[in-house]
Amino acid sequence: MTDAPRSVFPHRHLLGIEGLSPLDIQALLDLADQQVEVSRQIEKSKSSLRGRTQINLFFEASTRTQSSFEIAGKRLGADVMNMQVGSSSVKKGETLIDTAVTLNAMRPDIIVVRHHAAGAVHLLAQKVDCSVVNAGDGAHEHPTQALLDALTIRRNKGRIEGLTVAICGDILHSRVARSNMILLAAMGARVRLVAPSTLLPPGIARLGFETFTSMKEGLKDADIVMMLRLQRERMNGSFVPSVKEYFRFYGLDQEKLAFAKPDALVMHPGPMNRGVEISSDVADGPQSLIREQVEMGVAVRMAVLEALASHLPNR
């Protein structure tokens, strides 16, 4: 495989889907398609990031996203370092900036950041000289998740434009939902949001998204059903009354999936709560793309790292 052409991606950071043009997104997806092929070879290594230092700075615990970024960086030949920061030691904005300044002095080329506070990654990006990738900031954005979802959809449906995508569940607290909403709408999909009103962000309908509080109506004729994770602390009477009730009305089982198109595909960003937002038979069933999403995650992150690397100095 040849290295990606330079300047395919005109941004120094990837902080969110917001701000990307459809062409930017398409370029990343095209590049990611190539990375899928790389990852499926026995010899999976490339050299596009050789000599580069990638720091994965995770203020919030994450297994899959962090390992996905780590594998992606390593397959591109980067030196990858994981930094787990105990969230208790970084509650103050000052500490976040101090951390950024300290890391910056070590001259990394790319920092991948996850933080529990919306906007924290933007703040950090202002304080460093290298490229920054947002691996999730609070309930704001998780751009690589949206890209991997888009890649998965495109590879299975052949397109994104014109598809009806129902995003279901805890939209209020979900960065995955926000990034996906923006990306899918930008690429011409019809985006529906399906959730109890307590889990819908206030005013979201005014942003042009169709909202539904019933799965039956929301899933009708959907091509893609994208489920979201419901955090445990939100299940017990605060936002929804109970797991039982949530599953009864909003959990994706075969019965509710039948409201969607017969060839509808099911997605979930993981980790799943089986029996809460999704039943096991749907999660493991023939319409599920959930495992494929994980594979696409590595490819998309390789594409993002490589695209950003093309802007790094000394190139």
């Binding site: 017990n236 009477g237 605060s238 009354p241 109970s242 039982k244 009730e245 009864r248 009305f249």
Partner: peptide
């Protein structure tokens, strides 16, 4: 609310 305690809403749908 559960147990009439005013803290957690009940399973309104069920």
């Amino acid at each position: 609310t559960k147990g009439l305690e005013g803290q957690e809403m009940v399973e309104i749908g069920r």
